[in-house]
């Protein structure tokens, strides 16, 4: 395959990627988007790419992004295409990262141990994470728990993505991470995993799950489970073996956050 006029190779979380375009501006925008999506974890490399992304614009598709030869996003609105690319790239890096297991989960540190709150987008995990941070927990992530082979959590501290509560759900961000503090932050062993969904005025009734139930329940949120299931399960086993695993409905974040911290102080 011949390379396009402009191209750059990068490595991110161990995954070698290449961006190409005939348009220098689009390439620059792709690099900027990727840097933000991957919280600066984007370094130039000579390593041959496993994933090539091509950015272009034409009359038929508008702005488009190709991944290894297939169109993954196309639209007249360039901003929308790059917004989608931002999500797409994060997920693909999370799926193919060779030595870390990305789990769709909120993560905070409490007394030297991490609390994971697995959940999909729009499940309210950012709201709960923000509330826990307000109550004194250390911020790790509102999106991914990045787990190493020992099952410890590393920070993925993007500004917290919130939505307005005026019924219009407009997105906005809250930056709660101190960059200097983040650099010093060490990975934490997982102390607790909470599977929760919102229900108005639901009482906090934690039901404990076994480690195998924990792995089964977290599997749908585990990005590399389809690409690298054996390693994913091995790492999830490390996590669940030492953690308290609970399931409960939750009510509004401020009320629930306090109750949760009181509970964890007793049992974690």
């Amino acid at each position: 395959m011949t390379s396009l006029q402009y191209g750059q190779n990068f490595i991110s979380f161990g995954v070698a990627i290449r961006f190409e375009s005939t348009n220098a501006r689009l390439l620059q925008k792709a690099v900027k988007t990727a840097n933000k999506a991957l919280i600066g974890n984007l370094k130039p490399t000579q390593k041959p790419p496993e994933h090539t992304f091509v950015f272009g614009r034409n009359k038929e598709l508008g702005t488009f992004v190709e991944h290894n030869g297939s169109i993954v996003a196309e639209n007249e609105i360039e901003r929308g295409v790059f917004k989608y690319f931002d999500s797409y790239l994060r997920v693909r890096i999370g799926e193919y990262c060779p030595d870390r297991v990305f789990v769709h989960s909120g993560a905070v540190g409490i007394n030297g141990k991490a609390l994971l709150i697995p959940g999909n987008s729009f499940s309210g995990k950012s709201t709960l994470v923000l509330e826990l941070v307000k109550l004194g927990a250390e911020y790790f992530s509102d999106e991914f728990a990045i787990l190493d082979k020992h099952g410890r959590v590393h920070p993925y501290a993007r500004p917290i993505n919130m939505r307005t509560t005026d019924g219009k759900y407009r997105p906005y961000t809250v930056d709660v991470s101190d960059k200097a503090d983040l650099k010093k932050r060490k990975p934490l062993p997982v102390g607790a995993v909470l599977f929760t969904s919102y229900k108005a005025n639901a009482p906090f009734r934690p039901k404990r799950l076994s480690p195998a139930e924990g792995i089964m329940t977290i599997a749908p949120y585990t990005l590399p489970i389809l690409v690298n299931p054996a390693y994913s399960i091995q790492v999830l086993h490390e996590v669940m073996n030492g953690a308290l695993i609970v399931k409960s409905k939750r009510t509004h974040a401020p009320r629930f956050g306090e109750k949760l911290l009181q509970y964890l102080a007793k049992v974690m």
């Binding site: 076994s210 489970i225 299931p229 399960i233």
Partner: peptide
């Protein structure tokens, strides 16, 4: 993919993408 644990077992089926406890 089989993960044995005390008193239980986790089996992940890579063909159906289902986790069984």
């Amino acid at each position: 993919v089989i993960q044995e644990m005390p008193g239980e077992m986790l089996v992940y089926d890579t063909e159906t993408n289902k986790a069984h406890c």
